[in-house]
């Protein structure tokens, strides 16, 4: 009994610790997000939040549902594997509201050389030219139809400039 009396302050300290631990555990039950641990050690709801990000690129399947004519031209030519938005940029807004959002036309002077300007660093079998020597400043689309670039291919360059409008 004397031990209990003389160690009384230690029991008070232990009580304080027990109270603190209980307090933290109580808080914890309120502060841990509800979906935490749903799939693993993380907030399950975070997956849906990431998935909710809006898409900016519509995807070529979406483009092709309307632009069937271009899709056909392209499929027959050298650019068959190049998706629409690789050159035209992200067009989800246009796909969502085709009449009011005008995608505009890319500038071939900038666009074509990004891939085709000759560089020792590019794969040897990839078609590339020294643009200055090759055309002497004449715009690329004068001779090449971007959707089917080989000269003498299905579509004439003139219609290429007009696109599908």
């Amino acid at each position: 009994m004397r031990l209990f009396r003389d160690a009384g302050h230690l029991f008070r300290l232990a009580g304080l610790f027990a109270f603190g631990t209980l307090f933290i555990l109580t808080i914890r039950s309120f502060l841990v997000p509800r979906t935490f641990g749903e799939y693993g050690h993380y907030r399950g709801a975070a997956i849906a939040e990431v998935a909710a990000h809006p898409a900016r690129f519509a995807g070529h399947q979406t483009c092709e549902t309307c632009h069937t004519d271009v899709a056909q031209t392209k499929a027959a030519g050298k650019h068959a594997q190049v998706n629409c938005e690789a050159c035209h940029g992200p067009q989800a807004k246009h796909a969502d509201d085709p009449s009011s959002v005008d995608p505009g036309k890319p500038d071939t002077a900038v666009l074509c050389v990004r891939c085709h300007e000759a560089s020792a660093a590019r794969p040897k079998d990839f078609p590339q030219v020294n643009a200055g020597d090759h055309s002497g400043g004449v715009p690329c689309q004068t001779c090449h139809q971007p959707h089917s670039p080989a000269i003498g291919s299905a579509s004439a360059p003139a219609s290429a400039a007009g696109g599908t409008k």
Binding site: I47, A48, A51, A52, H53, P54, A55, A58, G59, Q61, T62, T65, C66, H67, A92, A95, D96, D97, P98, S99, T164, K165
Partner: peptide, 30 residues
Amino acid sequence: MNITRRQLLILLPAAAVAWESVLAGTPEAA
């Protein structure tokens, strides 16, 4: 080629359904 979104939905149901879920942005809707 002037197509409104409404027409797109009527014309191309399969593609449109996929596109709707893209816009909705929820995995459950996919």
